[in-house]
Design a protein around this nucleic acid. Structure first.
Lengths: 137, 137
DNA sequence: AATTACCCTACTTATTTAATAGGGTATGCA
DNA sequence: TGCATACCCTATTAAATAAGTAGGGTAATT
């Protein structure tokens, strides 16, 4: 299940991507337009800034803005920052790999076998989709 | 993230699928061989029985057994019973649909748009994979 | 200097997950 | 008939995560 955090994050990013010029947009503006709890959104945007997707400007006329062109931002990047692993199990994760405690052998594990396929197909979609594809711009 | 319940369920089902004849297999046997907590496995197998995938036999020589041929059991069926929705958000779920509380319009929603694609690609894999594909038989 | 708006920490509530415990009941065989 | 086997069912719990709340601090702009 996709967390609200990720959902809201994607919505906020598309909102910023739809802006004509790169004027900073206030948190409160996004919060209002996208029906997202202000404080919760604040922490999400902060995460996105710390991970290099957003820039921010303080003081009057301040706010958040995209650091790259929407078409340069892959969904894989966004998903990994907000949601974590793309894979459904750690033992098939490329960026967050962890060995299973049970399961003596990954090679012959039925779950592993299946989830590698699911990971790859999701990955293909997330790689081929950019922020520009998600907003109508 | 895939729940342990689903993971264990798939492992148990493949274990049963690998049996030569359809002799019932005891819970304790599966539990031991697949490193699954006995009591937890018990509840998982019960769910699978109630949903028509497994049959059971009580008393001495009893246990669980598959009701269909492994190649007749799609992964979509197993996933929906154990994990629930295939989709990452309820608003794109085919079998567990729910409208979003936020989000005024699904048509123009960026998250919806993306998650429909992810759902479809996962669905394609789960539909084209049967229990027989997962075990080496 | 005042205002605006980001920045950060800590806390809380609800939900879900992954068990665990402890019996109850049906079946088959001696 | 009785006993052992093995499924069947309910309730409880510990831990983790999600989602949000509260409140104040700090930096930048006008």
């Amino acid at each position: 299940m996709l967390s609200k955090k990720t959902k809201y994050g994607i919505k906020a990013l598309t909102y910023l991507a739809r802006q004509e010029n790169k004027t900073p947009v206030q948190i409160a503006t996004i919060s209002k337009n996208e029906n997202i709890s202000l404080k919760f959104l604040e922490s999400i945007l902060l995460t996105l800034r710390k991970n290099g997707l957003l820039g921010s400007k303080k003081g009057k006329g301040g706010g958040y803005y995209l650091l790259k062109e929407p078409k340069e931002i892959q969904m894989t990047t966004i998903m990994r920052i907000l949601e974590g692993p793309i894979a459904m199990v750690p033992c098939v994760s490329l960026n967050f790999y962890e060995k299973c405690e049970d399961c003596p052998d990954e090679e012959t594990c039925a779950v592993n076998k299946l989830m590698v396929q699911v990971r790859d197909s999701s990955l293909q979609i997330f790689r081929n989709t950019t922020l520009a594809d998600l907003c109508n711009c």
